[in-house]
């Protein structure tokens, strides 16, 4: 992280049936943060998402079927790791994340140095920029309280998916990424692996086209599932920081598949 000019940067754009937005997101990244390469992870879309993204010059990973946001993000991180990227940022394919904040996140990631291995944009440090539904606000508040207590630092927007991470974060997430509704669990993973989290105030757009990953009937499942994940996560053995070899003491990795 010393020669800032040499850093290779990647924007990971998970997209599932986002034909209406994805091209704009890719263009916006090019406009506001041209030094970022873009990989769109087409998570089994049935529309022209992949084609439109490719036409805008993005690299496209096409999942043969829908893996969910967790699987899509992990695909992106694997791509970043494989291709030697130093910085990776998640930008939702639905246009919720304002790409004009990318330089700010990048600056925070670089200047924070030892302070932050992962910098994320928080809606709730100030004005979110759009009207966040009450249910989400409450859910967010609960996660915020729990996570802040666990990590002993103020985490105001644990469900924000607008995240930029350095090499250590890329290695961690390429090997292991939570399945569905992964944002909160991913923060806990960062904390458990002693990666530092830093937040930057951003505003976001209300969701563009496409579906929100959380609609009302699912929010109860979301809450319970994430709280369970947090609870179980607390009882996992604390891993030591990841070695440069990309292996931690658990040998946690994508192939962590027990033999039957």
């Amino acid at each position: 992280m010393t020669e800032t000019g040499e850093l290779r940067k990647l924007a990971i754009v998970p997209a599932y049936n986002e034909a209406g937005m994805v091209a704009r997101v890719v263009r916006d990244i090019g406009r506001h943060a041209p030094e970022f390469d873009v990989v769109v992870v087409d998570d089994g879309s049935t529309d022209a998402t992949a084609q439109l993204a490719e036409e805008e010059g993005a690299q496209v990973l096409r999942h043969p079927y829908n893996l969910g946001i967790g699987g899509a993000m992990q695909s992106g991180y694997k791509y970043a790791l494989r291709n030697g990227y130093d910085v990776a940022v998640q930008v939702d394919g639905d246009g919720q994340h304002k790409t004009e904040y990318l330089p700010e996140l990048l600056a925070a990631l670089q200047t924070s140095g030892d302070e932050g291995d992962m910098v994320y944009g928080s809606r709730f440090r100030g004005d979110p920029g759009y009207k966040v539904p009450l249910g989400r606000r409450i859910g967010n508040l609960i996660f915020s309280v729990v996570l802040s207590a666990i990590t002993r630092q103020r985490i105001t927007d644990p469900t924000s998916g607008f995240r930029m991470t350095n090499r250590r974060g890329i290695e961690l997430f390429a090997r292991d990424y939570p399945h569905d509704y992964p944002e909160v669990e991913a923060l806990l993973m960062l904390h458990a692996h002693r990666l530092r989290i830093h937040e930057v105030q951003v505003r976001m757009n209300a969701r563009g086209f496409g579906r929100s990953s959380i609609d009302y009937p699912r929010s109860a499942y979301y809450m319970v599932k994430v709280l369970l994940a947090l609870f179980v996560g607390l009882f996992r053995r604390r891993p030591t920081p990841i070695e440069a070899t990309g292996k931690d003491e658990h040998g946690i990795g994508p192939p962590s598949v027990p033999r039957g």
């Binding site: 873009v38 690299q59 695909s75 494989r82 990227y85």
Partner: peptide, 29 residues
């Protein structure tokens, strides 16, 4: 994992065949 690998291989194959440009600009992935 298989789906992710299949997506990766498909992408690499397309790059190999020149069906998609190899990333943005000179430092393409």
């Amino acid at each position: 994992i298989l789906a992710q690998e299949s997506a990766r291989l498909e992408h690499e194959l397309r790059v190999e065949r020149g069906e998609t440009p190899a990333g943005d600009g000179a430092s393409g992935p």
